[in-house]
């Protein structure tokens, strides 16, 4: 099993519903977020190109955050989901330094927090909150190893990219372009 997400940059309108859904679902402290939306404007007027991306932890296959964690608090769950066990975390910040996507933050209570792919929902067979709330249905979640899953289907007929693959992390959020 390998959980992954595909996000259609052509469908995303940048409404930030996914951000609010995550904050509500996961009780994210005020002023923090586990996902965010980036708007990229490329080119020179009048030849401009716009890309809108909803970003979050990439649940990397080769995650430096898990490697650098001195206590093992950062670890892989089944399906490659990367999570932090709060009462094992010492708050050293090594994992924050090691994430090329700045997807982690230091929770006001001291431990490190991040996107969990809504593990608590996924375990019950539900989709992550951000995916289920998206009004344009631009996010696809599921098991990459299952050819019939939403994510595998979405990746089949489209070109896609990942963010900063040169950082060597093997990110598992795919952006349809």
């Amino acid at each position: 099993m390998r959980y992954a997400m595909a996000i259609d940059t052509k469908k995303c309108v940048g409404c930030s519903d996914c951000v609010v859904a995550c904050q509500t679902e996961n009780n994210v402290p005020h002023g923090y977020c586990r996902d965010w939306v980036v708007e990229v404007m490329d080119g020179t007027y009048p030849n401009l190109e716009l890309e809108i991306r909803s970003e979050r932890c990439n649940h990397c296959d080769n995650s430096p955050c898990v490697r650098c964690c001195p206590t093992g608090a950062s670890h892989y769950e089944a399906g490659g989901i990367v999570t932090v066990t709060a009462n094992e975390c010492i708050g050293c910040g090594a994992c924050i330094e090691s994430c090329p996507y700045d997807a982690r933050y230091s929770h006001p209570d001291g431990y490190v927090d991040k996107c969990t792919f809504c593990l608590h929902r996924v375990e019950k067979g539900e989709k992550p909150a951000c995916v289920s709330v998206c009004p344009t249905n631009c996010m696809y979640f599921g098991d990459l190893e299952d050819p019939d899953s939403d994510v595998s289907q979405a990746l089949q007929n489209r070109k896609y990219k990942t963010l900063a693959p040169e950082a060597g992390t093997k990110p598992q959020i795919y952006y349809l372009i």
Binding site: G14, Y32, W36, V38, V40, M41, D42, I52, D102
Partner: peptide, 23 residues
């Protein structure tokens, strides 16, 4: 030219705009 902005707003303490976790 390439310009990238957070449209959802993001200003996490010690992470944005630049990482500053280690003092």
């Amino acid at each position: 030219m390439k310009e990238e902005i957070f449209v959802s707003g993001r200003n996490i303490p010690n992470i944005d705009p630049f990482l500053h976790i280690w003092h």
